[in-house]
C-alpha cells in the first residue's frame, strides 16, 4: 500500500512515522568530564568515559551509561547540549533523563536554520521570574492566540536520585490549533536542531554569594529523546539518506527538496502547497503535449483560469508553439492524421516559392496563400482557366 496515494492512484496527504529524531545523532556538549582525567572520569578510557554520545545511543535503560559534565565549581554554571537533527522535523516532544539530581533551571531551544539562530520552546525553573524573567506557565496554556515559550516547573528529583525533563509541543500551544490549518503551529513545531541549556544546578541554592558552588557539581544525563516526524509537508511517508548521506524526504506528489517544499521543475501548473488530511495539493505537471521539458508558473494566468492552471510551457519542440505547445509554429500546420502529442504532428507548410504569396500557411488546413490564378495546398499549380506565364510575379495568367 502506498500511504501517499489511495487505491485508485489519486494522491493523498501522507506523513512519516513518529521517530526519535535524536537517535544516533551527534550531541555537542559544551562540557564533558574526563579531560583532564580524574578519579571518576577519564575521556581516554572507554570504561570510565562519559561522552555525550551516550545521550543519543540506543543503550539499554536497566543500567544506563550517562554523559557527565565537567565538575562545576564557579560561575558560569551553564552547560549546553545541542543536537543537530540533520534536517527539519516536526516536533512532538523532547525529553532528557537525568542520572543525578536534575538542574534547578533549564531552557529548551530550537533552531530552524541549522543552528544559525535559536528560539526558545520552554523554560523549566522553580524560580521563573528570577531565572528567566517570566511568569510561571498558566495551567490552561498560553494566553495569546499562538504558541509561546512558557516557564514550567523544574524537573522533580525521583527517588532513584535522577529526574526527567519532559516537554510536549502542546505544552506551549493554545488548545484547538490544528497543524494542517495553522501556519503558526507548523512553525512552532518545526526544528532542525534542539538545544538544552542547563543553567542552574540544583545545589546552587547552597552557593555562596560569589557564585561558587560549595559542593562540586556535575550534570549527568542519558537518553535525550526528540520525538517527531521528519518534516515533508504531507508529501512523503518516509525519509531516506541521499547519496551524500543527508537525511531527505522521499518526496511524492510532484514535489522535491529535503522537505518536499517545492514543486519539481516540470510540475508547476499550480503553486506548491502543503498537503492536508483532506487534500493532497499535489504539484501538477504542465500540460505540454509531450513537446516541452520545462515550464514556468504564471500567477496571472492561474488567476484567470479560476485557480486551475498556471503553467506555461517553455521551448516547445517539434515545431509546436503556445502555452501548452498545442498549436503549430509559424510556417507549419497540424497534420490531421496524427495525434497532437505526435512528434510529427506539425508539418512544414512548404509553400511554393513562386506560386504562394507568403511562406505561412493556415495552421489548421495547411493552405498556403496563393497568388491570383494559382491553386493547390502549396500553391504549386495554375487554377483551371489559367496557364503558367514566364513572370515569377504573376505565375499564372488567364488562358486566352
Amino acid at each position: 500500500a502506498d500511504p501517499c496515494h489511495d487505491e485508485g492512484g489519486a494522491p493523498r496527504g501522507c506523513v512519516p512515522g513518529l521517530v526519535n529524531a535524536a537517535l544516533g545523532r551527534e550531541v555537542l556538549a559544551s562540557s564533558t568530564c574526563g579531560r583532564p582525567a580524574n578519579r571518576a572520569c577519564d575521556a581516554s578510557d572507554p570504561r570510565r568515559a562519559h561522552p555525550a554520545t551516550l545521550l543519543t545511543s540506543a543503550g539499554g535503560t536497566a543500567s544506563p551509561l550517562c554523559w557527565r559534565s565537567d565538575l562545576l565549581q564557579r560561575a558560569p554554571l551553564n552547560v549546553t547540549l545541542t543536537v543537530p537533527l540533520g534536517k527539519a522535523f516536526e516536533l512532538v516532544f523532547v525529553s532528557l533523563r537525568f542520572c543525578s539530581t536534575p538542574p534547578a533551571s533549564a531552557a529548551l531551544l530550537k533552531s530552524q536554520d541549522h543552528g544559525r539562530s535559536w528560539t526558545p520552546l520552554g523554560f523549566f525553573s522553580s524560580h521563573c521570574g528570577l531565572d528567566y524573567g517570566r511568569l510561571p506557565a498558566p495551567a490552561d496554556g498560553p494566553a495569546g492566540p499562538g504558541p509561546e515559550a512558557l516557564c514550567f516547573p523544574a524537573p522533580q528529583t525521583h527517588p532513584d536520585g535522577g529526574g526527567l525533563l519532559a516537554f510536549s509541543v502542546q505544552d506551549g500551544s493554545p488548545p484547538g490549533l490544528d497543524l494542517d490549518n495553522s501556519p503558526v503551529l507548523q512553525d512552532w513545531v518545526t526544528a532542525t536542531d534542539i538545544r538544552i541549556l542547563l543553567t542552574r544546578p540544583a545545589m546552587l541554592e547552597d552557593a555562596r554569594d560569589d557564585g561558587e558552588v560549595t559542593v562540586p557539581y556535575s550534570y549527568s544525563a542519558t537518553e535525550l529523546q526528540v520525538g517527531g516526524r521528519c518534516k515533508c509537508n504531507g508529501h512523503a511517508s518516509r525519509c531516506l539518506l541521499d547519496t551524500q548521506g543527508h537525511l531527505t524526504c522521499d518526496c511524492r506528489h510532484g514535489t522535491e527538496g529535503p522537505d518536499c517544499s517545492r514543486c519539481k521543475p516540470f510540475y508547476c501548473d499550480r503553486p506548491w502547497q502543503r498537503a492536508t488530511a483532506q487534500e493532497a495539493h499535489a504539484c501538477l505537471a504542465c500540460s505540454c503535449n509531450g513537446h516541452a521539458r520545462r515550464c514556468r508558473f504564471n500567477m496571472e494566468l492561474y488567476r484567470l483560469s479560476g485557480r486551475r492552471s498556471g503553467g506555461v510551457c517553455l521551448n516547445c519542440r517539434h515545431n509546436t508553439a503556445g502555452r501548452h505547445c498545442h498549436y503549430c509554429r509559424e510556417g507549419f500546420y497540424r497534420d490531421p492524421g496524427r495525434a497532437l502529442s505526435d512528434r510529427r504532428a506539425c508539418r512544414a507548410c512548404d509553400c511554393h516559392p513562386v506560386g504562394a504569396a507568403g511562406k505561412t500557411c493556415n495552421q489548421t488546413t495547411g493552405q498556403c496563400p496563393c497568388k491570383d490564378g494559382v491553386t493547390g495546398l502549396t500553391c504549386n499549380r495554375c487554377a483551371p482557366g489559367f496557364q503558367q506565364s514566364r513572370s515569377p510575379v504573376a505565375p499564372c495568367v488567364k488562358t486566352p
Partner: peptide
C-alpha cells in the same frame, strides 16, 4: 481537371533576380 505543377524552368528571372528563390 488536374493542372501540371509550376515549372520553375519556364520563369524568366531577368527583371526579378532579387526574388529568385535559392534552389
Amino acid at each position: 481537371e488536374v493542372m501540371p505543377t509550376l515549372d520553375m524552368a519556364l520563369f524568366d528571372w531577368t527583371d526579378y533576380e532579387d526574388l529568385k528563390p535559392e534552389v
